[in-house]
């Protein structure tokens, strides 16, 4: 069986102009998504996620590399590829001149569905997305969460094999976000292949079966969320914010049970505290030893926390940076 999506050596460089330099948005990205898989592209803004998605959906022309949906090359046979994919874009681009119901029926007409099927599908999806009551309303009068559900309903109208979602929960309130997660989970259980970009770690952790962590146009790591977290040294993370004349890092690194020390750079924070992240094996007395070492270095300690690693930690470990918002 061919992959639902295969991306091989994808490169996209936006040409520069006289005033702006060329931008290498994607620099050699390769991955495959199996049929029925829920796959995530995780990374900060500007990492190259949306450009990768654009190349898959034919709206961005790749500079090099190959993208195939269900075995069909999207550059050579775009129309056939487009029949197999559906997109929930980051910009909610609902047709504002027609009703909610017509958003669905017109979309189906673009894909050549016969009238009876358009109508019955629209009825079913409106009910599934709990939009039946709003069928006669104009899309822009809906709340953000409802608009997002309408976008998903629209995407499903032509029965795609692969659903691509670009930051689907951005700007939604927590309740709407949870509802959307439920919807996506249900679609996944129904056998649909889903590919989602996000920069919300929790979302990626809950929904995706496999994740590619992407930054500066390259995939840093690709695995299941559990395996990504397992790959971190130690098993626990100890965060310390310290301020001292002489660096305490070397003292801490030498302690038994401390497997690795990383300095975290945080953009936009401008206190003089150094933020240290220790990957530790929490054996007896580790915390005591760490605190003693801090005191011995005459360091000012502002914050201590011992946590289970999360995807965010994996991300920080890989990039040395907190996720940029």
């Amino acid at each position: 069986m061919s992959a639902a999506l295969s991306v091989e050596g994808l490169v996209k460089t936006y040409p520069g102009t006289r005033k702006t330099p060329a931008v290498e948005a994607v620099r050699g990205v390769s991955f495959e998504v199996a049929p029925g898989e829920f796959f995530g592209l995780l990374g900060p803004n500007g990492a190259g996620k949306s450009t990768t998605l654009g190349c898959i959906t034919t709206l961005v022309r790749p500079t090099a590399g190959r993208v195939a949906v269900d075995g069909i090359d999207v550059v050579r046979r775009p129309r056939e590829a487009k029949r197999r994919i559906a997109v929930v874009p980051q910009t909610r681009n609902l047709d504002r001149d027609v009703t909610v119901r017509e958003v669905l029926t017109f979309h189906a007409a673009y894909f050549g569905l016969p009238r009876a099927e358009r109508e019955s599908r629209a009825d079913r999806l409106l009910a599934e997305m709990q939009l039946t009551e709003k069928a006669a309303a104009k899309p822009l009068s809906l709340s953000g969460g409802l608009q997002q559900r309408l976008l998903i309903a629209r995407a499903l109208m032509h029965d795609p094999k692969v659903l691509l979602l670009d930051e689907p929960t951005i700007g939604l309130d927590p309740q709407a976000r949870r509802m959307l997660w439920e919807t996506l989970r249900r679609l996944h259980e129904g056998g649909l292949t889903l590919i989602m970009t996000t920069h919300y770690m929790e979302e990626a952790d809950r929904l995706c079966q496999r994740l590619a962590i992407i930054d500066h146009g390259k995939i840093l790591q690709l695995d299941t969320p559990a395996a990504l977290k397992k790959a971190l040294p130690g098993g626990r993370i100890l965060d310390l914010w310290v301020r001292s004349a002489a660096p305490v890092g070397p003292r801490l690194e030498a302690l038994p049970g401390v497997l690795r020390l990383e300095k975290v750079t945080t953009e936009g924070r401008d206190d003089s505290f150094e933020r240290l992240r220790l990957f530790v094996d929490p054996k007896d007395g580790l915390l005591d030893r760490v605190l003693q070492a801090v005191q011995a270095g005459e360091a000012d300690l502002q914050h201590v926390s011992l946590t289970q690693p999360s995807l965010e930690d994996v991300y920080i470990h890989l990039t040395g940076k907190e996720l940029r918002e």
Binding site: E80, I85, P89, N93, R96, H107, F111
Partner: peptide, 15 residues
């Protein structure tokens, strides 16, 4: 410049 409704059309099976 903003609403990008055109993207829905571009994603339809048409050149």
């Amino acid at each position: 410049s903003g609403s990008r409704e055109v993207d829905e059309r571009l994603l339809a099976p048409i050149s």
